Amino acid sequence: MTRALVLQSDFGISDGAVSAMHGVAHSVDHQLSIFDLTHDIPPFNIWEGSYRLWQTMAYWSEGTVFVSVVDPGVGSTRKSIGVKTGSGHFVITPDNGTLTHIARTEGIVEVREIDEKVNRLPRSGESYTFHGRDIYAYTGARLAAGVITFEEVGPALDPDSIERISVKEPAVDESTVSGIIDILDIRFGNLWTNIPRDFFKKMDIEYGDTLNVSILHNGDEVYHNSMTFGRSFADTHKGEPLVYVNSLDNLAVAINQGSFARAYNIRTGSNWIILFEK
């Protein structure tokens, strides 16, 4: 059975790297359906690579094979792995934390260390800096095309042994909802949090309510303001901030027709804390 192959990397598209990955996958099976998730992950940003996988995976059919290459440790002792997720998808990737969000949400049910003696592009054995082409695209294509089974990726590993990045979980109490700024809505500069919409329901927060919003970086407050909880950007005037529910059913913060991230120099990760108070 042939599965779709979806590629993600931090390679950009200004040179031939992504095309080379497509070429390797196409050479495995000329009928293989190959798609791009994104190749605009900021260089070396494992956290964002992890998030984009989670953001996208649920919308692809069970059995889809993802290749994710954000690999600042290429050529080092870090492992190359294939995993099967709790949702029935497969990911071929370096073991460097890029599965953090998937492990938290979908779960990892099986892990295989890639056997590079078998699953490596022929005549590439002396290359140590382009594993995205030589190992990950090649192995992912072979798995997607049915040339190998998942068991033939390599020997089994303990799913609990894979690398994970530390994540601060969202929390709610009688007066405050807190979480982290998980990712930026890059093009528009909105802040997407890891706080589910249901947390506002627990506090009886309704659309139209005014909220106090604070953002802390490494414990220091870098932003504090009050803003409206709106259904859409139409609930505020141009240039005003608002809280809204994003397309993943989590809470987000934006400036209507402006970039919140750029205006206040906000970034992402577990050291960027956001708090909402009614």
Rank of each mutant, 00 (worst) to 15 (best):
R3D: 02
V6W: 02
L7Y: 10
S9F: 00
D10K: 04
S19L: 09
M21C: 03
A25Q: 10
D29I: 00
I34T: 12
F35K: 05
I41F: 09
P42Y: 11
P42N: 14
I46G: 03
W47D: 10
W54I: 07
A58M: 11
D71A: 11
P72S: 13
G73V: 14
S76M: 10
R78D: 11
I81R: 10
I81H: 14
G82Q: 13
G82V: 04
S87Y: 00
G88Q: 12
D95V: 06
T98M: 12
R104Q: 10
G107H: 00
I114E: 03
I114Y: 03
E116G: 04
R120K: 05
R123H: 14
S124T: 09
S127F: 13
D134P: 14
Y136L: 13
Y138C: 07
T139F: 01
G140Y: 01
A144Q: 13
A145D: 05
G146F: 08
F150A: 08
L157V: 02
I162V: 12
I162G: 10
V167R: 09
E169G: 11
P170W: 00
D173A: 10
I180G: 04
L184Q: 15
D185I: 05
I186E: 13
L191M: 13
W192R: 15
I195H: 00
I195E: 00
P196F: 00
D198E: 08
K201D: 13
M203Q: 04
Y207V: 08
Y207T: 05
D209I: 06
T210E: 03
V213W: 00
S214F: 02
I215S: 05
G219T: 11
V222Y: 11
V222L: 12
N225C: 07
N225K: 13
M227T: 15
F229L: 04
F233K: 03
D235V: 07
H237C: 02
H237Y: 02
L242H: 02
L248C: 02
D249R: 01
N250A: 03
F260S: 09
Y264L: 05
N265M: 04
N265D: 08
T268M: 08
G269C: 03
F276V: 03
F276L: 09
E277Y: 03
K278W: 02
